[in-house]
Design a protein around this nucleic acid. Sequence first.
DNA 1: ATAAAGTATTACGTTACGTTAATGTCAAGG
DNA 2: CCTTGACATTAACGTAACGTAATACTTTAT
Lengths: 251, 251
Amino acid sequence: MDTQRQYTVRQLARVAGVSARTLHYYDEIGLLRPDRNPDNGYRIYNRAALLRLQQILFLRELGLSLEEIQVILDEPGFDLLAALEQHRKALLARQERLAALVQTVDRTISYLKGNAAMDDQQLFEGFSEEKQKQYEEEAARRWGRANVSESQKRWASYSPEKKKAVFEEARQIYLDLVASMPLGPASPQAQEGVARWHRNLRNFYEPTKEILLGLGDLYNDDPEFNATFVRIHPELAPFLREAIQIYCKSL
Amino acid sequence: MDTQRQYTVRQLARVAGVSARTLHYYDEIGLLRPDRNPDNGYRIYNRAALLRLQQILFLRELGLSLEEIQVILDEPGFDLLAALEQHRKALLARQERLAALVQTVDRTISYLKGNAAMDDQQLFEGFSEEKQKQYEEEAARRWGRANVSESQKRWASYSPEKKKAVFEEARQIYLDLVASMPLGPASPQAQEGVARWHRNLRNFYEPTKEILLGLGDLYNDDPEFNATFVRIHPELAPFLREAIQIYCKSL
DNA sequence: ATAAAGTATTACGTTACGTTAATGTCAAGG
DNA sequence: CCTTGACATTAACGTAACGTAATACTTTAT
């Protein structure tokens, strides 16, 4: 005769790899109700309970909440298959999110490593005339002389004071935004950063919506600017353009 | 003059994409302490607070706890780089775990799809003589006649009663273990399943450690057994062998 | 017989806030 | 001046899934 194996809390806890408290809790919330020894009130788990616990732990391992598990196991006609396929999607989403996180951490790490000694001043030294020619060569190779956008002409028409002001404001926007970059281009931080940048710009001149958008383009299309932004962060320029565009929509 | 931008809770909450309650909470736990308006006691967040909040949200996005973040931001000489590299490892581990979960869910889904109509009896009908020849062919192709292990001879020496007993016990161990399979071969569930199987076996004869291990091999090496196990689950046979080996170590 | 170990129940602690609730403040409109 | 509505404040309870005592009873081992 196959004597029905009986488990006490601790025993079942040990073989199942969970704590006794967990079993108490599952009993408490009605997820796994054991029999009781009428003499001493001890919990008695039989083979059926063990199998149910295995189901519970399996589903829990899949990331389902205890409440969901309870529904799945107790609802008679519950569609486990559909639930699992649904859950599979959630897992894939979490996977993508994790992958993005890893990438962001990687970028942050390499940023910290590469630019540890580079202080705020140095970050924008790319604007200095000395370094300019180096970037110019590479940029000319990458975009070609003819491919420089309209915005460059606009830029060329600025006075030296205006240019300097834009440099300084660009430095400000960088300082404010680079920390929020990992949060995505459309983040409220980015929008607010652009808004502040806009307000600051007005200390020097009156930038229209077109000028703002033009600056966004400029940072991308102008080899000189772009090379500098790329040096800071590979995606800073497109990030700024998108943030500016979003901000301008709200004007 | 660049007038220092002041934020109230709601304003900062809006631009940062968090709730006002969150800022209250961060204030409460000392993670982000704003200035106060002496007139009305309102919180005042300045640009420094905004930057610190960006740091906080960034690190939070990386999955760090608020407590860890507090240490990182307040400990003067804290090694952020090392912390991030540490955290990166944790992320990769979570990624692997997620990938395993997806795989398990996939297997479970395909199992549910393919074997929905297969009840417990049918699961082991592979032991019936009618189906035996089909498997034998395929098995012979896969392992070759000469490659049948020692254990098969041992098996051949068993009496019909013993064989039937092992069949029944194999069915028992399957019923107990298949649910725990996704939890991994070395799981306590698996070990306990093997232990129970061992106890049950002793109802019929006295299996030595060698016989147990031999049965584990048998399930893998014997084409007849293996084909049946493969039909149930592609990895059931090696799973059983590993579980048996682990269990035998504790004897 | 006594100590160790296991059982039970009760209840508070944890994380990172969400959600009222009760009350105070500020700018705009009648 | 008063109301209204949208802000602000603090206090307090609720969440999920248990961990961690505290206290008391039972079983097991010596």
